[in-house]
Nucleic acid binder design. Structure first.
Lengths: 211, 211
DNA sequence: CGTATTTCTTAACTTAAGTGAACGGTTGTT
DNA sequence: AACAACCGTTCACTTAAGTTAAGAAATACG
């Protein structure tokens, strides 16, 4: 038990974690300014976690209170209907995900998995309630972040509704070219709302047009 | 000028407005409890507005700080690309809309119009900043509301991605049957991501299957 | 009340996505 | 090294949405 604690300390205090602490504080500083005491209070919550590629963070049917914030790596949300995976979102560096089931307090309708070795910030809603009431400026940040995410997601949704699969692929190529490299094609396809075969065909079509 | 003020008083203090005040307070009471003083402070902001069908609340290219909350009636957001209207959302009773351009402080990419005679709550972001700092519990409500809306919109987006136009129409028939009655078909069609002709065809197809 | 405009539907044809199957290429496992 | 599992691509065929056009129905307006 004592040995375990030691190893935990070593893990948590090594270089990559120190770097991630700064990455987080840089992000937060865009919204509010924290005192050293407040920073230490945040760190003492032990919210930084290394997660191996392939780890499933949430399964359909489970209750959860956990939110995730990707400091490094990539997580993905997907449904399984008729035995078929339908990927609906990817969250990469500096992107936050609070699963709807955490808000609605109902069983999750989807899965979350880690598709790269990642470093995530994992918080739970009880903790957030406490932090928000103790540090009102933290709640202000959460409010602003939610409002920003809501607006951003609205634009993504609108764009999805008003464009064809081919146009969506071209837009993705512009806006998140990294995703096309780091994510398997069949997951990208369902993210674009089509089948893997259609994505292959569509890419061939685009190449043809270029020449 | 004086006469105008009188007529304004008459408008704002008639029965329908009194009813709407209560509708709003009932809604708020699900999140926080307000004292009589706080209620009066809210009312003194003069945020209740009657809006005639057809009124355009926001145009592409405009800057705006206004958010809307429908107490009665329906508003709609739409883009115009290549001279064609693309409707992306409807907001009816007890639904709130903060246009993305208000958050990003950039010119609006879309239009908002009132498609029924409506009673709206119209707030602007300066006002909200002030109210939030004066009444912290109001900010708490905003945070919770944003988080809920984000989760709800995420589910809508996921559902849109993972279903066919026909399935989307059938889902809408279940979840918001009123929309199908109160909204013109061609606006519904683009809301479903298809052309009006396809919606007609799709409905005929469904009727055929039933028989 | 009658005309103009908008809205909805239908139809024929085009285009693109879904489906099922097959084929190489890669990865992972024993 | 051999095998299985998975992945991406291609092809032929099916299905559904886009496009263009025309006409009927409903609505708005003078």
């Amino acid at each position: 038990m004592f040995a375990l604690t030691i190893s935990w300390c070593n893990r948590k205090s090594n270089n990559i974690y120190k770097k991630m602490h700064n990455v987080l504080f840089d992000f937060i500083s865009k919204y509010i300014s924290l005192t050293e005491d407040e920073k230490n209070a945040l760190l003492s919550l032990d919210i930084f976690h290394s997660v191996k590629k392939g780890t499933i963070l949430l399964k359909e049917g489970q209750y959860s209170k956990e939110s995730y914030f990707a400091l490094k790596g990539c997580i993905r949300t997907y449904y399984i209907t008729d035995g078929e995976e339908k990927t609906t979102a990817f969250y990469t560096e500096m992107e936050a995900l609070t699963p709807p089931c955490v808000i609605s307090k109902t069983p999750s309708e989807y899965y979350i998995s880690c598709i790269e070795d990642s470093i995530l910030l994992v918080s739970n809603s009880d903790m957030e309630v406490e932090v928000n009431s103790k540090f009102p400026k933290f709640e202000t940040m959460c409010r602003i972040l939610s409002e920003e995410l809501l607006a951003k997601q609205r634009i993504d949704f609108d764009e999805f509704k008003t464009t064809s699969p081919e146009q969506r692929y071209l837009n993705l190529l512009q806006k998140r070219p990294d995703l096309i490299q780091r994510v398997p094609q069949h997951q990208l396809a369902s993210y674009l709302g089509i089948k893997p075969q259609s994505l292959s065909r569509l890419r061939a079509r685009i190449l043809e047009k270029k020449s």
